[in-house]
Amino acid sequence: MKLIRIFFRNVRDSFKSVFRNFSLSLASISCITITLVVVAISILLTTNVNNFARLIEKDVTIVTFLKLNITEEEKDKVEQEIRSMDNVDSYTFESKEEISNSMMEDSETFKSIMEQWKAEDSPIQDTFRVKVDDIKQIEKTADAISKIENVSLVKYGQGMVEQLISVFEIVKNISIGVVVALIIVTAFLIANTIKITIFSRKREIEIMRLVGASNLNIKIPFIFEGLFLGILGSIIPVVVTIYGYVTIYENFNGQLFSPFIKLIEPQPFIYYVSGLLVAIGIVVGMFGSWRAVRKYLKI
């Protein structure tokens, strides 16, 4: 009961304090707001780049050509082996008849040539199209598939795919690094701003100590204050995220420059990002206050 009373008193006092020291609170709030807007933009960018990378990676397929004139059992055996591989996500089978039919439908020239072939003359091979789970392992998987009996050739855009993967990997790591660095910088920036604002309240802390407040007694209201500042500071970034992203998405019709580069659908994406921003605001605000007030407790 006592603890609950202390808890609510702290909440009430820190709320009051935000408004009683409004000009100082405003400084902290704007600091949180500005940095969170930057964090929001980089989160939106990185997640979209990552999403784009994932979409491309998904499209990469290992095309597995089987030897000519193999029996149904031999084909089943290959299929079994492919299925049993760890890195295989899914696969489709296209028989040589299906392939020839689709080729003949595509072009008249093909049709006229291919119609003259007898079934056993056809150079078209039965094919498995294999998609992998982990694109980084694609080379290994392709290699393993090529070693299966009755597989004649394996193609997956060797060289190009590896390059693409390494570029995406770099972009991903840099963008994550940037976001993390931004959050850390924000935390210290806010800690400093709050430190300045708390400096003017040194007296308050001194009096609290004088009347017998323990260090925890003193810290908790300030930490709650940091929490409120974090929430208030994240309002504008959240609004910017929601309206800004939806506007951009609609203006670009959900894609950037070409249908290849698809933007992430706004819902529920923007709500996750907003939640994340509020969470960062709260954590960073509390951390900042905690660090700042700690300095004044070393009496």
């Binding site: 007296r203 308050e204 100590r209 004088l210 407040a213």
Partner: peptide, 18 residues
């Protein structure tokens, strides 16, 4: 220190009020 401070009161020349 707070344990001690809770057992005594201090008054200053400059009042130290909020």
């Amino acid at each position: 220190v707070y344990i001690l401070r809770r057992k005594l009161g201090v008054v200053f020349q400059d009042f130290k009020l909020l």
